[in-house]
């Protein structure tokens, strides 16, 4: 335990308070840390060219953009596209669905991979560990079309899930699970857990290998059981990875993609299955309303960045760490 707190202390100690800066000390830093600048500035330029510069495309959101015209010939319409977006009932519907599904996915995508990684870490048999880990990440490579097909048949009237429920006498007659609007979010989250847990656990496994083994030895000497070790060493050891991923994913709450929802969904549950990305596709690119599509993606970006800063701020306040 003492070693642990020592490790934590060394972490916080790492960031010495910066004193007030001025020009001279910056220049001095620049020279002193020239390697650090050499190692980062080329990439800053890179990002500027390939990521920041194309943002001029956002001007499309304020135009009635026509692919055929040059920039100067475009018709400017102010905030019309945004006004339309915020007045569309369907937008709020897809926003609700998106947030619900990504919120559930965020929590499940945090808990299950960590749990899986931790359990795997407790396995002493190396071959079992490697095989389990390899197999669990395979579904990641199977497309959603296939997974959706399997899920649909598992949950169909004569599927195995209904068979089990009948056998347990929990239900009297088979339920058409895929036709239940209110269960759709759960079905998506469950399928996602099934498909991605093994893949997402890899990052935590890597983080766990970074934990100093001496900490476990010391804890064992102190008489700590497996649960104590998990709780006091493993989890704190990967805390910073967990937090970084969590904060970054909060920023992605609106960007769920639409593939799994489209493939798992059907016309009966469409009020619960349509998500923002599909809406942007259907009402933007697909019908050549690029401006509207851009307005939606601008909205998504701005909200994402706000979410990111909020999450990071809270993270900083409570955990005294920050990704930025």
């Amino acid at each position: 335990m003492e070693t642990l707190t020592a490790a934590q202390a060394s972490q916080t100690k790492k960031r010495p308070k910066k004193t007030k800066t001025n020009k001279r000390s910056f220049l001095k830093d620049l020279i002193q840390q020239k390697y650090l600048y050499l190692m980062s500035i080329p990439f800053v330029i890179w990002l500027f060219v390939f990521n920041y510069y194309p943002i001029w495309g956002w001007t499309m959101a304020f135009q009635n953009y026509k692919p055929a015209r040059t920039f100067g010939e475009q018709e400017w319409v102010g905030f019309d596209n945004f006004v339309r977006l915020f007045h569309d009932d369907q937008f709020y519907l897809v926003l609700r669905n998106t947030l619900a599904m990504s919120g559930m996915g965020l929590v499940a995508g945090l808990i299950f991979p960590i749990l899986f990684a931790v359990l795997l870490n407790e396995v002493k048999s190396m071959p079992f560990k490697r095989i389990t880990q390899t197999i669990s990440y395979l579904p990641h490579f199977v497309s959603w079309v296939v997974v959706a097909g399997i899920v649909t048949s598992l949950l169909s009237l004569d599927g195995i899930v209904n068979d089990i429920l009948m056998w347990l006498h929990l239900i009297d007659e088979p339920i058409q699970i895929m036709a239940k609007e209110h269960w759709f979010w759960g079905v998506v989250t469950g399928s996602d857990i099934w498909k991605e847990t093994g893949w997402n656990a890899i990052i935590y496994l890597a983080a766990i290998t970074g934990i100093d083994k001496e900490l476990y030895e010391a804890a064992r000497v102190d008489g700590a059981g497996r649960f104590r070790q998990i709780w006091n060493i493993t989890l704190p050891g990967i805390r910073s990875t967990i937090m970084v991923l969590f904060v970054m994913n909060i920023g992605h709450l609106l960007a769920t993609g639409y593939e799994k929802q489209m493939l798992l969904g059907n016309d009966l549950v469409s009020d619960y299955s349509q998500v923002l990305d599909l809406y942007a596709l259907d009402y933007g690119i697909k019908i050549a309303h690029f401006s509207y599509g851009t307005a939606i993606s601008m909205f998504t970006s701005v909200v994402s960045i706000l979410l990111l800063f909020t999450a990071n701020g809270l993270f900083k306040k409570f955990a005294k760490e920050s990704i930025m």
């Binding site: 469409s270 009020d271 259907d282 009402y283 019908i287």
Partner: peptide
């Protein structure tokens, strides 16, 4: 026409058709 409302309304009616027809049949 890709201009104006036409495509948007079309897309909306498509969404309505896709969910209402099954509802009516069932």
């Amino acid at each position: 026409p890709t201009d104006g409302d036409y495509q948007v309304i079309y897309q909306k009616t498509q969404d309505i058709i896709r969910k209402s027809i099954p509802k009516a049949i069932l």
